[in-house]
Design a protein around this nucleic acid. Structure first.
Length: 472
RNA sequence: GGCGGCGUAGCCAAGUGGCUAAGGCGGAGGUCUGCAAAACCUCUAUUCAUCGGUUCGACUCCGAUCGCCGCCUCCA
């Protein structure tokens, strides 16, 4: 069984073969820090982080880079609106980006390079392109000469002539071809700028990703990912810049996630139909949001609504309550962990789960296998008598789910659920007292304890032979 | 106009040239219970937008039609 992924470059699912046997070099287009990122922006950050962690789980040594674009038109506009400097805007939202990622359970990349820290490298690349005659300066700007690269348009499947006829933008007269794009922009009054061989200016949008990805991952690396909207022109132009300069293949596998829509329309800051990740996190746990994304294949569009989020929450609590019930069942009987092999059915589900992820990271399919394990566990627990081998199966199911959770991140850790060991002790005493009250048929007081605990997030369940509590 | 994708039960959503078309939410029954809540179990698509074609056989392949979405401009 080997990992296969859909490669936008070839428009097909391909066997994944990294350049170096067990090493994977991966780059994801990160945020432009001019605002809080919205829940749609969170999708690639979240899903590709999980993908990276899956690769690590599978034994790959992954070097993972996510850039931070901290200079561009939108940041300048934001700075003007907030009457502050671009540096301050960038600093504020860079911090917010890291905070929001942490809350969402997204692990830090190995490198988070900032565009403004790499201006010299960018100028070097532009120089190289100019020297090779692939780029040409014009009045302080520098343009990329698209005609010089025969493979231009390969990634997006576009032909230069088609693009021209569909162009909706007024063409800059200085361009040799309407598709030529700007590598270096001449400074305008009041805008931040850097010295360059072409005068003061700042980098064009696509430049930083070419420069920083190659700097940290090499001229050719394995995976480059981002939203589908980046295919053209951003990624197309990155290829042009990089391959133009190095003469070698830039990226082997291009992965693109689908959009998050609202009422069938793309969620976008410009459309105003967005919710920031922060807002959503105030209402829902990060695990719920992760679940929401995992229940769909990363390349499909998702329609966002509170109803969908709520469904994900319900689905997740099915897993959680089964895990909690397994814990309760195991608390009384300790199976010998060394002897656990699991039944064939559990082992099959385990294999199917991994096979699903190996099939172009089909998390929707994989999650179904988790639910099948959950049902297996529930069937075992609903039996009148639980045998030793059943307990072993339960432990096996629990361990398998927790093992996968290493990269899924949908199950809260025990530490989060129960912060203080002592609390457990007091809770047990309360439950014991309530049991005595129930034996005396003092329902009023017994219910009072139950209600008060619910207010504190503790749920009691009166079972046949005992009362159990759960934190929710 | 060019390019790409999608249309599967009430809703969300996987999947496959022939085997029971996963799973989740919701709903309906049932179990448990002092009551409750929760939880669990069972059931919930003779059918995969429509119409043709290829095939022994298609929801899956091909063609057409209808509908939806994205990119072609900043955009995850």
């Amino acid at each position: 069984m080997a990992l296969r992924i859909y490669n936008t470059y070839t428009n097909s699912v391909e066997a994944f073969k990294p350049l170096a046997d067990s090493k994977v070099k991966m780059y994801v287009c990160g945020p432009t820090v001019y605002n809080y990122f919205h829940i749609g922006n969170a999708r690639p950050l979240l899903m590709f982080d999980i993908f990276r962690r899956y690769l690590m789980y599978r034994g790959y040594d992954v070097r993972y880079v996510v850039n931070i674009t901290d200079i561009d038109d939108k940041i300048i506009r934001s700075a003007n609106e907030e009457k502050t400097s671009t540096a301050e805007v960038a600093a504020k939202y860079t911090q917010a980006y890291f905070e929001d990622c942490e809350k969402l359970g997204i692990r830090n990349p190995d490198v988070s390079p900032k565009a403004t820290d790499h201006i010299d490298d960018m100028i070097e690349l532009v120089k190289k392109l100019v020297d090779q005659g692939i780029a040409y300066p014009a009045e302080g700007d520098v343009f990329y000469d698209v005609k010089k690269l025969p493979q231009y348009g390969k990634l997006s499947g576009k032909k230069i002539d088609d693009l021209k006829s569909g162009a909706r933008v007024e063409v800059d007269k200085r361009k040799k071809d309407p598709l030529d794009f700007v590598l270096w922009k001449a400074a305008k009054p009041g805008e931040p700028s850097w010295e360059s061989p072409w005068g003061k200016g700042r980098p064009g949008w696509h430049l930083e990703c070419s420069v920083m990805s190659m700097k940290y991952l090499g001229n050719t690396f394995d995976i480059h990912a981002g939203g589908v909207d980046l295919i053209f022109p951003h990624h197309e132009n990155e290829i042009a810049q990089s391959e133009g300069a190095t003469g070698t293949r830039f990226v082997n596998y291009w992965m693109h996630n689908g959009f998050l829509n609202v009422d069938g329309e793309k969620m976008a800051k410009s459309a105003g139909n967005f919710f920031t990740a922060r807002e959503i996190l105030e209402k829902y746990k990060p695990e719920v949001i992760r679940m929401f994304f995992l229940l769909k294949h990363y390349r499909s569009p998702i329609d966002f609504s509170e109803e969908r989020i709520h469904e994900s929450q319900q689905a997740l609590s099915r897993i959680n309550s089964t895990l909690a019930n397994i814990d309760i069942a195991l608390k009384e009987f300790q199976p010998d962990a060394k002897k656990i092999n699991g039944s064939t059915i559990i082992n099959n589900l385990r294999e199917q789960f991994l096979a699903a992820l190996d099939d172009d990271f089909n998390t929707a399919n994989a999650m179904a296998k988790i639910f099948e394990m959950v049902r297996e566990a529930n069937i075992i627990m609903s039996a009148e008598q639980i045998q030793q081998r059943d307990l072993e199966a339960l432990l096996r199911i629990k361990n398998t789910i927790l093992e996968f959770n290493e990269f899924l991140g949908i199950i809260e850790s025990e530490q989060n659920k129960i912060s203080e060991v002592e609390q457990k002790v007091y809770l047990d005493i309360l439950v014991e007292v309530r049991q005595k009250l129930r034996e005396q048929k003092n329902w009023k007081l017994a219910d009072f304890i139950r209600d008060r605990l619910v207010e504190k997030g503790i749920e009691l369940e009166d079972r046949k032979d005992k009362t159990v509590w759960k934190k929710f």
